[in-house]
Simulated assay, not measured.
Amino acid sequence: MSTSSDPHLDVIVGERGHLTNLAYRLLGSLAEAEDAVQETYARWYAMPRQKQEAVESPGAWLTTVAGRICLDLLGSARARRERYVGEWVPEPLPDRAEWISGPAGGGSGPVDPADRVTLDESVNMAFLVVLESMTPAERVAFVLHDVFRYPFAEIAQIVGRTPAACRQLATSARRRVGAAQVPTAPTAGQAPLVRNFKEAWEARDIKALVGLLAPDATMTADGGGLVGATLRPVEGAARIADYLIQIADRAPGLKLLERSVNGRPGLVAQLAGVTVTVAAFGLDGDRVTRIWAVRNPEKLRPWFAEGQDGEARRG
Rank of each mutant, 00 (worst) to 15 (best):
A165R: 13
G67T: 07
F127Y: 15
W292Y: 14
I240H: 01
I291W: 06
L9G: 00
V274G: 00
E154P: 02
V147W: 10
V210C: 00
M47W: 07
P151L: 02
A173K: 05
I155V: 13
R25N: 12
R314F: 09
G14P: 04
G223N: 07
S108R: 12
M219H: 03
R78T: 11
R68S: 13
E202A: 08
P192C: 06
Q157P: 02
P233L: 08
P103K: 01
A229H: 05
V261S: 06
V111E: 11
T275V: 15
D115L: 03
T218Q: 11
V274H: 12
R250F: 09
F304V: 12
Y150D: 10
L9N: 08
F304W: 13
L244D: 08
L244P: 00
A248I: 03
G106W: 06
L144Q: 08
G59K: 15
G211C: 07
K198S: 14
R287V: 05
Q181W: 07
A191N: 03
P151T: 06
A23T: 03
I69W: 04
E121Y: 11
H18R: 15
T40G: 09
V278R: 03
V55W: 09
N262K: 09
G59M: 07
S108L: 13
A46H: 12
M134E: 04
G307D: 09
R167H: 13
P136Y: 04
I158E: 04
L271P: 01
V147A: 00
G189F: 02
S122G: 00
S2F: 14
G236T: 03
V13G: 01
G107L: 09
L256M: 08
V143H: 05
Y150W: 13
T63W: 02
Y41D: 01
A238T: 06
V130N: 00
D146I: 07
A156L: 05
P92G: 07
A237T: 01
C166E: 09
G75Y: 07
R195N: 10
A23P: 09
L267W: 02
Q308P: 00
T230A: 15
P252A: 01
V55I: 15
A214E: 07
P151I: 00
G228F: 11
L62P: 06
R83Y: 11
Q308N: 10
D115K: 00
L22G: 01
P110A: 13
P215E: 04
T289V: 15
R96A: 11
S108K: 07
G223F: 05
A137G: 00
G273Y: 09
A97W: 07
A97I: 10
G225P: 04
V140A: 05
V11I: 14
S260F: 00
K255P: 02
E132L: 10
L73E: 13
P92S: 09
L93Y: 03
A36Q: 08
K207F: 08
L9Q: 14
L209M: 14
C70N: 08
S4I: 15
S29G: 06
G310W: 13
R295L: 14
V37W: 02
K198E: 13
A237Q: 02
L73F: 12
P183C: 09
P90E: 07
V227H: 04
K51F: 14
L209Y: 03
N21H: 06
P186D: 12
T220S: 11
K299P: 06
G282T: 07
L73S: 10
A66M: 11
F281V: 03
I247T: 10
S57A: 14
R78Y: 10
P7E: 12
R49G: 12
G224I: 01
R80H: 12
Y45W: 15
I69F: 01
E306M: 13
R80I: 02
